[in-house]
Design a protein around this nucleic acid. Structure first.
Lengths: 263, 263
DNA sequence: ACCTTTGTTACCGACTTGTGAAAAATGGCT
DNA sequence: AGCCATTTTTCACAAGTCGGTAACAAAGGT
């Protein structure tokens, strides 16, 4: 499992240009995605950005600062909040932490410490909910559920083994794209594919078989000769129209019809 | 506004008597349970104390400090760790945070701020609490009662031991989801699972046995080879009608609407 | 035609899990 | 303290399952 150093998404709410410049530099070299905001934004917007943590200087908001802090910590308990303010007293820091901030560091401060504290806060937050963030993935009639390590068609399990599931998950995630064998092997097996290794082909066959069993009438895995494989739900019925993408409503081959609700 | 201020359990590893006196005073008035240790104790002992957080002065351990810190953060990812040391440099603080400390505050510091930071570090507990406050948990024929540390079928106790109950409770709470052994061990035993440890398997067997005794005709614990276990009440009778749950059939997806168009 | 790439099947060894029992630890009791 | 009953952990072995390899067939490309 190569979960370790995942790139964080961080929002910075501050207008101290010097501080921002050096901080964004550090975040860049750490490979983090970041967004700088000169002023407070509505909490909804922070949600939409899907950030793991937010660094905020309460100074930019004046008296609103406290209530803003309270709002985002109350609304988004999973968000890491690091307050980074100039010349705050002990009682101010205590107040901020009590309200829900995860950490507080006074300026002037070393950017490396800010980075380390963001990491720490994000690490702590992530321990909370490791899995529930990933919603089920739907392609054609297939539903891939990471929390179950399984895929389903109309509620019926495909009985995939671990490797089979991981392969299907990778394919489903990159729906529509052609993946070369080397890429697939690298991402599912975790290391480079030896020359002449046929494991990918064999597992593709196993997957095809199980997909066909539970969802006949669709072809999911398409071979691109000399290149690799592409995953896409296509009707294999000669007379039926092509795709089964979301939104396409048509008569099902069997007696059961599957409607996919949202993206 | 701090509602369910359940008393935290905190261990303090330090020998600075003045600091300790004033800190324990504050913890007492906050209603926390605490234990002061003049020297480092084996991580297992911290596990046994079931503390939510530990405050540690790396000074008391000399060079061992770093490795000790590394050990406890590695072994107990859920433990809040607040380092509280005298005159640490930025790079030392960064190193500590990187190793896994949740926070670092330099002495001399105001005890109220230490209290607030401990709270902040331990705040993740809030999430799990509400589940225990709600009524007993029912899955299939099984009723799990957290207030009694027992589970029942038709009013009959399963005679679970403490560990058995905790394991069953965890499984029942995450009904339908596959839990990996490492996760189970981490959440029931409280620290990281050693490689090759079979305790989870053994207790799963014990649970299965007791569940089978009191509730035959149902299969509750399902093995996912190479992954872990999933808890769900499924009728083991071939012809018998299904579950006493809201979903009428097997592990069913929630995000997909299945419409049967049969005549 | 020729060679290369992919499909398909069967099999064996390695690893995972089930199972019972012994050993160790825990906790109460006198 | 020592003793006993219960619980937890560890161990060894049995039973299963899966993954990767090899070997051959089929299909695609030149």
């Amino acid at each position: 499992m190569s979960q370790g150093r995942e790139s964080l998404r961080v929002a910075v709410i501050d207008n101290d240009s010097g501080f921002i410049r050096v901080l964004t530099n550090r975040m860049d070299s750490a490979g983090w995605q970041h967004r700088v905001l000169a002023t407070a934004v509505p909490p909804q917007e922070l949600v939409a950005m899907k950030v793991n943590a937010v660094v905020v200087d309460l100074g930019v908001m004046g008296d609103e600062g406290w209530s803003y802090l309270e709002r985002i910590t109350g609304l988004m308990p999973d968000l890491g909040v690091l307050v980074c303010a100039s010349g705050a007293t002990v009682s101010q820091r205590v107040r901020g932490l009590r309200i829900g901030a995860d950490d507080w560091i006074n300026k002037p401060c070393h950017p490396e410490e800010v980075i380390a504290r963001i990491e720490s806060v994000a690490r702590r937050r992530r321990r909370l909910k490791p899995s529930s963030t990933v919603g089920p993935l739907v392609v054609g009639e297939i539903e891939v559920r990471a929390d179950q390590f399984q895929a389903f068609v109309a509620g019926q399990s495909l009985d995939l083994t671990r490797r089979e599931f991981e392969l299907l998950q990778l394919l489903a995630e990159s729906e529509g794209n052609v993946l070369e064998r080397e890429t697939i092997y690298q991402r599912v097996w975790g290391y480079a594919m030896a020359h002449g290794d046929r494991s990918v082909d064999v597992f593709i066959r196993k997957l095809r078989h199980k997909l066909e069993k539970r969802s006949p009438g669709f072809a999911y895995i398409h071979t691109h000769f000399g290149v690799g494989y592409r995953f896409a739900a296509e009707s294999s019925m000669p007379s039926a129209p092509a795709v089964a993408e979301e939104g396409s409503d048509r008569a099902a081959p069997q007696s059961t019809e599957v409607l996919s609700a949202s993206v």
